[in-house]
């Protein structure tokens, strides 16, 4: 994160947790319709989605963050990353807001390993603490999460 700039993020809810991600890292938000499951895929891959002729890989970041059992299909939306044909499913979309860089705090020391790995920071808001995710780390989860590969 570049210092001394207003940080703009989009907030969303996932597994009852308030989260956010830098708007500069995302391309678009689309309704998650018809995600094709991929059998034998790692747990953190929710499936594939056709977005205007491009096949997107939809990740289940609940698994990455160790939040909840991955069996429940999250309804709602898919946030698509800017850099790759990859997105992740969220339960609900909030707002785009901005905040001073100074108000951003490091991830608490007692956070779960998943949160420690994929989150950059937290923001203390009125409605609760928001976890700010790091898009690049999520994108490279295939390399970090070899342990989560479903055994064949």
């Amino acid at each position: 994160m570049k210092p001394n700039q207003n940080f703009q993020y989009i907030s969303f809810k996932l597994a009852h947790t308030l989260m956010g991600i830098d708007i500069l890292d995302i391309r678009e938000i689309v309704p998650s319709s018809r995600i094709t499951r991929v059998q034998l895929a790692p747990w953190y891959v929710l499936g594939l989605l056709n977005l205007r002729g491009q096949i997107l890989t939809i990740l289940d970041i609940r698994v990455l963050l160790g939040l909840e059992s991955p069996h429940q299909v999250s309804g709602g939306h898919v946030i698509v990353f800017k850099y790759a044909n990859v997105g992740f499913a969220v339960d609900g979309i909030g707002d785009v807001s901005s905040i001073d860089r100074e108000k951003i705090e490091p991830v608490p020391a007692n956070a779960t390993p998943g949160v420690q790995t994929y989150a950059d920071a937290v923001i203390n808001l009125h409605e609760g603490v928001m976890v700010i995710l790091n898009a690049h780390k999520i994108l490279s989860c295939a390399r970090t999460e070899s342990g989560l590969q479903r055994s064949l």
């Binding site: 991929v38 895929a41 790692p42 953190y44 096949i55 890989t57 990859v86 989860c141 295939a142 590969q149």
Partner: peptide, 13 residues
């Protein structure tokens, strides 16, 4: 996609 490219039972999407 790279996340599932190790699945040899699929040739592609």
């Amino acid at each position: 996609p790279e996340y599932i490219s190790h699945l040899k039972c699929f040739a592609g999407t």
